[in-house]
Amino acid sequence: MAENPPQTLSLDRIRQDVADVLQVDPGDLEDDELLLEQGMDSIRLMTLVQQWRDTGTEVTFVDLAGRATLTRWWELLRDK
């Protein structure tokens, strides 16, 4: 059985996934806003890590915890 190829994460997908875990509208998230101030916590962060790993993206909790804005996460994840 062949493996599914990795899915590419887009900025829109990242924004939607973050909005989903924070239970906010994606349009309410600013690109350079600190997500920790919007309610991002370690449990939600691990949820995102697992979601994105499931797409084939190599990302760790530490990668995201040190880059807590949509812009910084996109810079990290677009090259994965």
Rank of each mutant, 00 (worst) to 15 (best):
Q23K: 14
I14T: 04
D63Q: 07
T55S: 12
V18S: 01
D32I: 00
D17R: 13
D17H: 12
L76W: 02
V62M: 10
A68Q: 09
V24A: 10
V59H: 08
V18W: 05
L9D: 02
Q51L: 07
R67N: 10
T8P: 05
V49G: 06
M46F: 11
R13Y: 02
L76Q: 11
Q51W: 08
E75N: 11
R13G: 12
W52A: 04
D54T: 04
G66R: 00
D17F: 00
L34T: 09
R53K: 15
G66Y: 00
L76S: 04
Q16L: 12
L77T: 04
G39A: 11
F61E: 12
D20T: 14
V62I: 09
M40D: 05
A68R: 02
L76D: 04
D63E: 04
W73H: 05
D32A: 10
L36N: 09
S42N: 05
T8D: 11
Q38D: 01
W52G: 04
V49A: 12
A19N: 11
R53I: 03
L70I: 07
R72M: 00
T47Q: 06
D12R: 09
P6G: 07
Q16M: 10
G39F: 13
D31W: 05
T57D: 00
L76K: 08
M40K: 02
V21M: 02
P5Q: 14
L70H: 01
V49R: 08
T69S: 10
